[in-house]
Simulated scan of single mutants.
Amino acid sequence: MHVLILGGTTEARRLAELLVTGAGPRVTSSLAGRVAAPRLPPGEVRVGGFGGAQGLAEWLREHRVDALIDATHPFAGTISFNAATAAALAHVPLLALRRPGWVAGEGDDWHEVGSLDMAARVLPELGRRVFLTTGRMGLATFSGPELAALWFLVRSVDTPEPPCPARMEVLLDRGPFALDGERELLRRHRIDVVVTKDSGGSATAPKLAAAREAGIPVVVVRRPTGPEGVADVATPEEAVAWVRRLGG
């Protein structure tokens, strides 16, 4: 049995670890290649795109894939739609592995928006020193003259490329992050507003707790809608059970 994991997330790596055993299936993890030095999962690894849905369908057929698991980032929307189309074309079972989104709790001052553009529009009303944790892709959204008076601390795995905010400091780091560290980061940089995507999971959630404790507003970009009709699970263990049921 050959399983293709569309990965790049913590859950995808954990899934590969669980599947790659002595008697387990053949596992190939596909990474988009946007991170310079990704943490490679066990098993076979390929890096780069497929050339759209048709290209992915051809790859599934050529490599005799028996099961496709979309474990990409919740905001990697294009690949999820391509995966749904390709799975239908190649007649390969598809499962989406999606970590649950974050939920606001008592004391949170969240401002939920539907896009990065909307996040940029509400920022001037909320603060002047911004902790921007949406990744290096999309920084151009915050580079306009209407935000020139704001200062940004941008946390990213790799160095961002322009266009970027006019007043910016870059912090190169990779999660998971600890609550004490996030508290100190907010204090040291005098952050008064946080911007994040609803990535879910525990690796980057401590910034939300630190913001709550400090009474700092958080702009949360909601997840995009995924393709309809795709079965989904929340944990790698559930995905393993799905694979085992397929394999009989």
Results as ranks from 00 to 15, higher is better:
Leu179Pro: 09
Ala149Asp: 15
Gly101Ser: 02
His91Lys: 14
Gly144Ile: 09
Thr72Phe: 03
Ser202Ala: 14
Asp180Phe: 10
Pro160Tyr: 07
Pro176Asn: 06
Asp173Gln: 13
Leu153His: 06
Val92Ser: 03
Phe81Ala: 12
Phe142Glu: 02
Pro124Gly: 10
Thr159Pro: 11
Ala104Leu: 02
Glu125Asn: 10
Arg187Gln: 12
Pro160Thr: 07
His91Ala: 14
Val157Cys: 02
Glu182Arg: 07
His189Lys: 13
Ala149Pro: 04
Val103Ile: 11
Gly200His: 09
Leu97Ser: 02
Cys164Gly: 12
Gly135Asn: 01
His73Tyr: 04
Arg167Leu: 05
Val170Thr: 13
Asp158Trp: 04
Ala149Lys: 03
Ser156Thr: 14
Val92Phe: 01
Ala149His: 12
Ala84Ser: 12
Asp158Gln: 01
Ala83Met: 01
Ala96Gln: 12
Ala84Lys: 06
Thr141Leu: 11
Phe152Ser: 06
Ala148Cys: 03
Ser156Lys: 03
Thr85Asp: 15
Arg190Ala: 15
Glu184Met: 14
Pro100Lys: 00
His111Trp: 09
Pro74Ile: 02
Pro160Leu: 13
Arg183Trp: 01
Gly105Pro: 04
Asp117Cys: 08
Gly77Ile: 12
Gly77Phe: 11
Pro145Ser: 11
Trp151Phe: 14
Ala96Tyr: 08
Gly105Ser: 04
Ser143Trp: 07
Asp117Asn: 13
Val113Lys: 09
Arg190Ser: 14
Asp192Leu: 03
Pro100Ala: 00
Ala104Glu: 13
Asn82Gln: 15
Pro163Arg: 13
Ala83Cys: 01
Pro160Gln: 05
Phe142Leu: 01
Ala119Pro: 10
Leu132Pro: 09
Gly144Glu: 08
Glu106Thr: 12
Phe81His: 15
Trp102Asn: 02
Trp110Val: 00
Gly181Thr: 06
Thr196Phe: 07
Arg167Trp: 04
Cys164Met: 15
Ser115Leu: 05
Arg98Trp: 09
Leu116Phe: 03
Arg183Lys: 09
Asp192Lys: 12
Val170Leu: 08
Leu150Thr: 01
Leu94Ala: 06
Ser115Cys: 07
Glu182Ala: 10
Val122Tyr: 07
Arg129Phe: 06
Gly144Asp: 07
Arg188Ser: 13
Pro162Gln: 01
Asn82Lys: 08
Ile191Tyr: 01
Ile191Arg: 01
Gly114Cys: 06
Asp108His: 08
Ala87Phe: 11
Leu150Ala: 14
Phe152Lys: 11
Glu125Arg: 14
Leu132Tyr: 06
Leu185Lys: 08
Arg187Trp: 07
Arg121Pro: 04
Leu89Met: 13
Thr141Ser: 10
Leu172Cys: 13
Leu172Arg: 12
Gly175Tyr: 03
Asp117Gln: 15
Ala149Leu: 15
Leu150Trp: 05
Gly138Gln: 01
Ala119Cys: 04
Leu185Glu: 03
Val157Lys: 12
Pro93Cys: 08
Gly200Asp: 08
Asp198Pro: 00
Leu97Trp: 00
Pro100Arg: 00
Pro162Ile: 11
Glu161Lys: 14
Gly200Ile: 08
Arg129His: 09
Pro163Asn: 10
Pro160Met: 09
Gly107Gln: 08
Phe142Gln: 01
Arg136Cys: 04
Arg155Leu: 05
Thr72Cys: 07
Trp102Ala: 00
Val154Gly: 02
Phe152Gln: 03
Leu179Asp: 13
Gly107Ile: 03
Gly138Ser: 02
Thr196Ala: 15
Thr141Gln: 09
